[in-house]
Design a protein around this nucleic acid. Structure first.
Length: 562
RNA sequence: GCGCCUGUAGCUCAGCUGGAUAGAGCAACGGACUUCUAAUCCGUAGGCCAGGGGUUCGAAUCCCUUCAGGCGCGCCA
């Protein structure tokens, strides 16, 4: 519809120019928008205002010329008005909206999908929490955002791969293994002064508790039982514990995410970058390019040449590479894998890392625009308006699993997506469980269930619903509004994809649900008139399809009854 | 100290690629269930878009600045 209006406007400008009413047939990019105020018609364009400079005429004069040359060959326009400083407002015949109902039905599950992605390869990397403890609510938000961005992009025709980067290298894993070893020794009766910099959570004790010496090879068992109260740790024992803990925790993370409806295509191991020499290779590559240099016995990356505030160490003077070095190799690898675009979803506390990462990417010869970094702000967990008591179990954070167990996956995901990712989110556990209008999840799901309920009842009436209904029976203002809203859906999805803003879809669904609830309360679908009933059922089925498609993008279920 | 982000109704937030009278939900107040699910709907009220400057036909939106809050500034990960 929008495209049609744009075409009409452009044709009118050309026609006006040919008649000499306009000085030029050129036009700057013309915007057509749906006015906020319904009095301003269905569509509005600022074409006259933005053309003022080129045409060297007053905007209202230009608008007059355009208006006079509007040719409406399809007969969809019911009115053209000039208003304000030079807006041209178009009103569309209500009947012109009717074909959209059929369009929804025809495309079904694909209604709203598109092809602007042109099959371009995009990678979305998200969560990527260190496998040193269970996921907490903050990770949950990142998971919901990342997963939905991936779904939306995929729906728009991008070839999307979801990836989890496992930080299984470096000394945090050593520390993890040591933590488990010490807890194990504690359980074995040794008196241990548990270090502060070890992982404090009870899950460490749980893992230590699963170790059964008699099931292990002799040398490992021996190493584990060796007393290390003197601070002498057997590397074999630590290594065993590291591997064990890493596995257990990663499996837990996998399960938590799966229960949250998030599945990854690739689980990428940082350790693998070392094992096959990719870190060394990428460093050597950087040296060849002259973008690293030595100073004070360490190796530095010239990130400051690429807008970062200072240079960064990639290899410490003790010979160990930094996390940054792994990340450079990792990102090289991503682009070598052929992704046109790489999207990283990070916690906002990593924002200081953005510039250096982009610098590194640019320094290695890849345009920085191909790396997008979404910074997701923190989650404040509340219970009935008060800060929720921190879980004792994991120490500092409330585990994602606890939240999902308590409020359900649908509510959790939906609420995580009710805000722009850049604003801090208050997540109220009590509110998430409420089954009222305060809780937006139920509001939208309820709309879906209501449609299903009407459809079910409709089946008993023996009215035949098909695309052969008479759309002209749908003349109520609320019906036209609903159709217009549904017609918006593809644009909303596309906008959400291009701007990586999944909350657009969430807000859209709340609006659509609102249009539906209003209509539902005012007009009955099941009437004495079979033709009218059929037409309304056909309309409502379309609404159901759109809600379902939208919820699917958010990873939220669309229940048929509630 | 430097950097990034945020500041919109009593509360929680949309709107920000400049457009017309700044929108929702909650809370408040008043209404609607013999009728397809009231987990809903309708109405009323509520605003110096943090403050100040600038850019222009036009600013919540762009620029500068002040204030307030969050976060980050390691040869940690």
């Amino acid at each position: 519809m929008k495209d049609k209006i744009i075409g009409i406007v452009k044709a009118a400008i050309v026609a006006a120019h040919e008649k000499g009413e306009l000085g030029s047939s050129e036009f700057p990019p013309i915007e057509i928008e749906v006015p906020k105020n319904a009095d301003h018609g269905d569509f509005s364009t600022n074409a006259a205002m933005v053309s003022a400079r080129i045409q060297k005429m007053a905007p209202r004069k230009i608008a007059e010329a355009i208006k006079a040359n509007v040719v409406d060959s399809d007969g969809i326009i019911s009115g053209v008005e000039i208003a304000g400083p030079g807006f041209i407002n178009f009103s569309v015949e209500p009947s012109a909206w009717h074909p959209f109902i059929k369009a929804v039905h025809d495309r079904g599950n694909d209604y709203g999908s598109g092809s602007i992605g042109k099959g371009k390869k995009v990678q979305v990397e998200f969560v990527s929490a260190n496998p040193t403890g269970p996921l907490h609510v903050g990770h949950g938000r990142g998971a919901a955002v990342g997963d939905t961005v991936a779904r939306v992009l995929s729906y728009c025709g991008f070839d999307v791969e979801k990836e989890y980067y496992i930080n299984d290298a470096g000394n945090q894993i050593q520390t993890l293994g040591l933590s488990v070893l010490l807890r194990f020794q504690e359980l074995a009766g040794h008196t241990i002064d548990f270090p502060k910099d070890c992982y404090q959570g009870d899950y460490i004790k749980d893992i230590a508790g699963t170790i059964k010496l008699d099931e292990l090879p002799g040398d490992v068992a021996g190493a584990l039982s060796k007393d290390c109260t003197d601070g002498q740790y057997d590397s074999l024992a630590v290594e065993h514990c590291s591997r064990l803990a890493g596995e257990v925790i990663l499996n837990g993370i996998r399960d938590d995410l799966s229960a949250f409806g998030v599945d990854f295509d690739v689980w990428f191991s940082e350790k693998s970058l070392f094992d096959d020499g990719r870190v060394d290779r990428s460093l050597a590559d950087c040296q060849k390019k002259g973008i690293v240099y030595e100073k004070d016995g360490a190796l530095w990356f010239k990130t400051s040449d690429f807008k970062d505030e200072k240079d960064r160490v990639v290899k410490r003077s003790d010979g160990n590479t930094t996390y940054f070095a792994s990340d450079i190799a990792y990102h090289m690898d991503k682009f070598e894998r052929g992704f046109d675009r790489v999207i990283n979803v990070w916690g906002a506390d990593h924002h200081g890392y953005v510039e250096r990462m982009k610098a590194a990417v640019e320094a290695s010869g890849v345009s920085r625009d191909r790396l997008d970094i979404i910074l997701v702000k923190l989650v404040n967990l509340l219970r009935a308006g008060e800060p929720a008591a921190m879980s004792t179990r994991s120490g500092e954070f409330v585990p994602l699993k606890d939240v999902v167990d308590e409020v359900g996956r649908d509510a959790a995901r939906f609420i995580f997506l009710t805000r722009h990712y850049e604003s801090a989110l208050d997540f109220d556990l009590e509110l998430a469980k409420k089954k009222t209008n305060e809780n937006p999840v139920f509001y939208v799901q309820y709309a879906h269930a209501r449609v299903c309920s009407v459809e079910k009842k409709g089946k008993d009436t023996a009215v035949e619903v098909s695309e052969n209904i008479n759309p002209d029976l749908l003349t109520e203002a609320e019906e036209i509004l609903l159709i217009k809203k549904m017609a918006d859906f593809p644009d909303v999805v596309e906008y959400a994809a291009m701007n990586m803003e999944p909350h657009r879809v969430t807000f859209y669904l709340m609006e659509l649900a609102s249009c539906f609830h209003t209509y539902y309360n005012k007009h009955r679908a099941l009437t004495d008139d079979p033709d009218l009933t059929a037409a309304r059922l056909y309309l409502l089925s379309a609404v159901r399809i759109v809600i379902k498609n939208g919820l699917e993008l958010l990873g939220v279920s669309a229940p048929e009854s509630m």
